[in-house]
């Protein structure tokens, strides 16, 4: 893709906005359509576009598989640990109302944290699967 000047310039312009849109969908999921799953996929799509245009080697430099592995596990652990913190505070597993003194604020915090966990895991897994698929043929 080294000679496709138009593709390179346009994707360079688009990728920051794709990532920004991913973050917007992630943290605006409480108020509008969206959430962790969609945000993770959009975020991963930005990285996959980068890998398609600028080559797999550069993409591996940006997101090393080791970091992706850690992020995959971190997202799920974040989700589960929110549930465990709820248990420590005297509620059921994944009951967010006990996270804060005010139940509604606790629900907000819990939803934000678990959606973040979902987003991190989904984005890391999607990028990882793509890198695995493209790295196989070489």
């Amino acid at each position: 893709m080294r000679h496709h000047l138009v593709l390179r310039v346009v994707s360079k312009l688009l990728i920051p906005f794709i990532l920004l849109f991913g973050l917007y969908v992630q943290f605006h999921g409480d108020f509008g359509p969206g959430g962790g799953f969609q945000a993770g996929v959009i975020f991963a799509a930005g990285f996959i576009l980068y890998a398609l245009i600028f080559g797999r080697e550069n993409a591996v430099k940006v997101t090393p598989p080791r970091v992706l592995q850690a992020l995959m596990a971190f997202g799920l652990l974040l989700y589960a640990s929110v549930g465990v913190v709820g248990m420590i505070n005297g509620g059921n597993f994944l009951n967010y109302s006990v996270l804060r003194a005010d139940g509604v604020a606790g629900q907000h915090l819990g939803i934000l944290l678990i959606e973040l966990g979902v987003g991190i895991t989904v984005a890391a897994v999607m990028i990882m699967v793509f890198l695995m698929f493209t790295g196989r043929g070489r």
């Binding site: 108020f31 907000h108 939803i111 959606e115």
Partner: peptide, 21 residues
Amino acid sequence: KIDVPNIVTAVLASYRGYDTM
């Protein structure tokens, strides 16, 4: 109880948090 404008998110993340996990 949850005070989130998007009920889909409330169901997914809170009522059905176990499924989402």
